[in-house]
């Protein structure tokens, strides 16, 4: 555990340092995006994905050198490809159909770098043997998790806080898989300096390079520990959001292709769009009854994530034969 603590400290410090170095440079170079949910639409540096992924990679290498456990390297490699796809999308937007397809590739990297066993642990069923089906499910898992985390990254601090809340209760579930637990802790550590700056009112945005990396890292961690189903339960708020938006707009669409927005704004307050044809998102569901402040919605989404995480952990310990 000392090795994980050391690697986590490196991840956190490196990420903090990179934020401090990169932020003034982003401002000087005009790498800024509008915070559309605030009055006056202030401009915020984006994308800060490299300041989260590179410390994670460095910490994973240190963890590997100290423990010789290759799982952290496998997670860093596969999520690294998702990070690069996200960076490409930040620089020049990829199409709404190309991006989900590209996000299958990190799964192939994981299969190439880690000996994945097609025996996921499932609630009610116990250890399943899915020799044929598993690989298709694994490809889908990567693109679903990455896109779901990406869609959750729409309000200040919502994505990192919800990731913390849904995955911290999963730690006891990963207790028997040290590699997966170490990767999750390294992810938490490298995300912390970003979260402190991204929370309301945001001073940085991560961009797709950050959210796709985080989603892919979660998919990798679930796959190496065979706890895919428990990550699915813990990430229900993310999956609900992604699924509802895709279903209500009738398929995969780029943000600017969706004419009617899920929510409307008024003086910094947010509410579900009264138009019955407007897409359904988690934010719209939370704000369906009344006008809410952005930070209020983020807190409620985090509470939902915590409930899902606890529900997942309880499912593992009470409803899963082993």
């Amino acid at each position: 555990m000392l090795e994980v603590a050391l690697a986590s400290a490196v991840a956190m410090l490196t990420s903090e340092l990179m934020h401090r170095v990169m932020l003034p440079r982003y401002v000087r170079r005009g790498l800024l995006s509008e915070d559309v949910h605030k009055p006056g639409k202030p401009k915020v540096p984006e994308p800060l994905g490299p300041a989260v992924y590179l410390p994670f990679l460095m910490a994973s290498l240190i963890h590997f050198l100290l423990t010789k456990d290759g799982s952290s390297i496998a997670v860093a490699s596969s999520s690294g490809l998702a990070f690069l796809i996200g960076l490409l999308d930040d620089l020049s937007p990829l199409g709404p159909r190309i991006k989900p397809l590209l996000l299958i590739l990190p799964a192939l990297v994981l299969i190439a770098t880690y000996q994945i066993t097609p025996r996921p642990l499932l609630p009610i069923l116990g250890r399943a043997r899915l020799h044929y089906v598993y690989w298709i499910v694994l490809l889908a898992l990567f693109t679903v998790f990455s896109n779901a985390v990406n869609m959750m990254d729409s309000l200040n601090g919502m994505m990192p806080l919800s990731v913390y809340m849904s995955t911290i209760p999963l730690m006891p579930v990963l207790a028997k898989n040290e590699g997966a637990l170490a990767s999750l802790l390294l992810l938490h550590s490298s995300l912390l300096p970003y979260f402190l700056r991204n929370r309301y009112p945001a001073k940085v945005f991560g961009g797709d390079s950050n959210s796709l990396f985080v989603g892919s890292a979660l998919a990798s961690i679930s796959a190496i520990s065979n706890t895919e189903a428990f990550f699915c339960i813990a990430l229900i708020p993310f999956l609900v959001s992604g699924f509802s938006v895709i279903t209500s707009v009738g398929g995969l669409r780029e943000r600017r292709q969706i004419t009617s927005r899920p929510v409307v704004l008024r003086e910094g307050m947010i509410r579900a769009n009264p138009d019955p044809m407007a897409p359904i998102s988690l934010i719209a569901v939370i704000a369906s009854d009344k006008w809410k402040r952005e930070d209020e919605i983020v807190r409620e989404a985090a509470l939902l994530s915590l409930i899902s995480g606890i529900l997942s952990s309880l499912t593992f310990f009470l409803l899963t034969p082993r």
Binding site: C232, I236, I286, S288, K292, T315, L319
Partner: peptide, 19 residues
């Protein structure tokens, strides 16, 4: 409020759906 209750319903029904 009803919005938060509805989002709670989506979480628990989603969980029940998986099971």
């Amino acid at each position: 409020d009803k919005g938060f209750l509805l989002s709670l319903y989506t979480i628990f029904s989603g969980w029940a759906l998986i099971l």
